[in-house]
Design a protein around this nucleic acid. Structure first.
Length: 466
RNA sequence: GGUGCCAUCGCCAAGUGGUAAGGCCGCAGCCUGCAAAGCUGCUAUCCCCAGUUCAAAUCUGGGUGGCACCUCCA
C-alpha cells in the first residue's frame, strides 16, 4: 500500500510500526452545528482508507474524535439557554445519523473531549515540567513555540519577523506570536472545568494529542499513531501544534504518515462559515440519496479540491446507476463467493494512495463486460458467480451498491405515487397485450410525468425515478 | 506580502520520462412494436515559450491563469 504523506510531500510505501496493525487518527467535528459537505468528504475519505487498509489484511484501530468542548459551543449554549450537553448530544447524534446515510462505518473509537480531560491535564503538566509551556499572570498556559526546534517543520513554514513583532506587541503576555493556548483560565462564571491549574478550559489543539496518547499511543514506539488525517486546512496551525505538543511532552513523534483531504467548494466558491454558503449535509440528503452523495464525493481523488455542483453530481449518479442496473439484472441469485482478477486489480489501484479514478474505470469496464456477456450468453453460470462476487467486493471495499437495487431507483417517490405508477403500468401492459400501442405510449407519457422512466424487460416492466 | 498547490477532450477526471484510462454529453449502429436500459463504434497530444533527453502531458527555467493556507474552519 502507498500513501501520499503531506508532510514529506511524497508518496511513500506504507509500513505500519507493528506488523499487521494500523492505528489511524482523524480530526472529527466540533459539535456545535450541522455537518456540511466538507465534513462528509473528510469522513468519507477516511472511511475509504480504513476499508482499504482492512482489505489489505490490516487490523485497523481507527479513532475519530468528537470535540465537545469549544468556545463556539459555549456561545451557542449561552445564546439559546440550553445546556452544553443538550447541544453537543444533539449534533453528535445528527452527525452519526447523517454519516450513516452516507454509508460511513463508525470508527473503532470516538473519544470525546469531555471524557479526555485527565489526559489533557497530564500533557499540560508534562509541558510545564519540562519548560515547553509557561503560565501567564492571568492563569493562562501557553505552549512556548521557541522551545521547540522542530516547530513549523511539519507545515514547512517560515516565521515572518515583522508579523512576529506585531503580534507579540498586541498580546504582551505571549512570549512568541505563534505560542498557542494549552489552557485558558476562566475568571467569570462561564463554563469551565476544575484542574490543578485552576478553573478553565483546554485549548483545542491539546485535545487530539491527549486522545492519541490515551487511546492509541504505545510505549517504546517512535510514533504515537501510524496515520494522522484531517482536512487540508488543519495542517496549520492545528496539526503543527498537535505535533509540537506531543513531541515535547512525550518520547515519540505524533504520526508516521500525515494525510490531508482537499476542500469542497460550492459552485466554485469556498464553503465558509463566515461567507455563510455552507451546504449542510442534512439539506443535501433531502434531495439526494446518501449513497449518491457518497459516490459523488468520493469520485475525485481525495487530495484534489472538489467543486460541488449539481450537474457533476448527476453525471456521477449515472455511473452509480450502472452498478445498480447490473445488480438488478442478477438480483436474487445465490452465488459462490470467488476471488477474481478484477478484485485484485481494484484493491491494487485503491491501495495506490486511494486512486479512485483508476478504480472507477476498472468498475466501469467490469460492468460493461458483464453486461455484454449477459446479453450474449445469459446463462453463463461462471460469469454470474464472478460478477456477483465482484459486486459484493465493491460493496465491501467502496460501499457502493449496498441497497436493494429496486428501492435505490425509487428514491424520493412516496407510497401513493408508487401505487399510481404500478396501476398505470398494469393498464399499459394490458394495452400492450392488445397491441394498442397508441394507448400504451400515452400511458407511458403519463408515467413520465411523475419523473419516472419505464423499462420493459423479459421479467416484466420496471421503473426508475429519473 | 509570506508559504505552497494546480493548469489534460464541451463537462468531470486518471496518468508524473516511453509515445494520452474511465465517466457524462454528442453522433452512428445493434436490440425494441416504439422507447428506456444494455451493447458496439467514433471524438484530445496534454495553458504558452525555451531547455534537458534517443524519448516529456510527465524533468528544468521563464511566463500566463486559477486556488489554498498564513484567523475558527473538514
Amino acid at each position: 500500500m502507498y500513501i501520499y504523506d503531506s508532510v514529506q510531500k511524497t508518496k511513500r510505501e506504507f509500513i505500519p510500526q507493528e506488523s499487521g496493525k494500523v492505528s489511524l487518527y482523524v480530526c472529527g467535528p466540533t459539535v456545535y452545528d450541522d455537518a456540511h459537505l466538507g465534513h462528509a468528504k473528510s469522513a468519507l475519505v477516511f472511511d475509504l482508507l480504513s476499508r482499504v487498509l482492512k482489505a489489505n489484511g490490516y487490523e485497523v484501530v481507527y479513532a475519530r474524535n468528537i470535540t465537545d468542548i469549544d468556545d463556539k459551543i459555549i456561545k451557542k449554549a449561552q445564546e439559546s439557554g440550553k445546556e452544553i450537553k443538550e447541544i453537543t448530544d444533539f449534533y453528535t447524534n445528527a452527525f452519526h445519523e447523517e454519516m450513516g446515510k452516507l454509508g460511513v462505518i463508525r470508527p473503532t473509537i470516538e473519544p470525546k473531549a469531555t471524557e479526555s480531560l485527565e489526559a489533557m491535564f497530564a500533557l499540560i503538566q508534562k509541558l510545564l515540567d519540562n519548560k515547553h509551556a509557561y503560565k501567564t499572570s492571568q492563569g493562562d498556559i501557553y505552549f512556548d513555540t521557541s522551545s521547540d526546534s522542530q516547530y513549523l517543520k511539519l507545515s514547512h513554514r517560515i516565521q515572518d519577523e515583522n508579523e512576529k513583532k506585531q503580534r507579540v506587541e498586541s498580546s504582551l503576555e505571549k512570549k512568541n506570536s505563534a505560542d498557542f493556548a494549552l489552557w485558558k483560565s476562566v475568571k467569570d462564571g462561564s463554563i469551565s472545568f476544575e484542574s490543578s491549574f485552576g478553573k478553565g478550559r483546554p485549548g483545542w489543539h491539546l485535545e487530539c494529542s491527549a486522545m492519541i496518547e490515551k487511546h492509541l499511543a504505545k510505549p517504546n514506539q517512535k510514533f504515537a499513531v501510524d496515520i494522522h488525517g484531517g482536512g487540508a486546512d488543519l495542517l496549520f496551525p492545528h496539526h503543527e501544534n498537535e505535533a509540537a505538543q506531543t513531541r515535547c511532552a512525550t518520547n515519540h513523534a505524533l504520526a508516521a504518515y500525515w494525510m490531508h483531504n482537499g476542500f469542497v467548494n460550492i459552485e466554485g466558491e469556498k464553503m465558509s462559515k463566515s461567507i455563510g454558503n455552507s451546504f449542510f449535509l442534512k439539506d443535501a440528503l433531502k434531495i439526494y440519496d446518501g449513497e449518491v452523495l457518497r459516490f459523488y464525493l468520493l469520485s475525485t481523488h481525495y487530495r484534489s479540491n472538489f467543486n460541488f455542483n449539481e450537474e457533476d453530481l448527476l453525471s456521477s449518479k449515472k455511473r452509480l446507476d450502472k452498478i445498480y442496473r447490473l445488480k438488478k439484472r442478477l438480483f436474487g441469485l445465490s452465488f459462490e463467493n470467488v476471488k477474481t482478477s478484477f478484485q485484485n486489480a481494484l484493491l491494487e489501484t485503491l491501495s495506490d494512495d486511494l486512486n479512485i479514478s483508476a478504480s472507477l474505470a476498472l468498475i466501469d469496464e467490469m460492468i460493461s463486460h458483464a453486461n455484454e456477456t449477459l446479453d450474449t450468453a445469459g446463462k453463463h453460470k461462471e460469469l454470474k458467480h464472478d460478477t456477483l462476487s465482484n459486486l459484493a467486493y465493491i460493496e465491501e471495499i467502496l460501499g457502493f451498491g449496498v441497497k436493494n437495487p429496486y428501492k435505490y431507483f425509487q428514491f424520493g417517490v412516496d407510497e401513493e405515487t408508487k401505487r399510481k405508477i404500478d396501476m398505470l403500468i398494469k393498464q399499459r401492459d394490458e394495452a400492450k397485450k392488445a397491441k394498442d400501442f397508441a394507448s400504451s405510449d400515452a400511458l407511458r407519457n403519463d408515467i413520465l410525468a411523475y419523473g419516472v422512466n419505464l423499462m420493459d424487460t423479459p421479467q416484466g416492466t420496471f421503473w426508475e425515478k429519473i
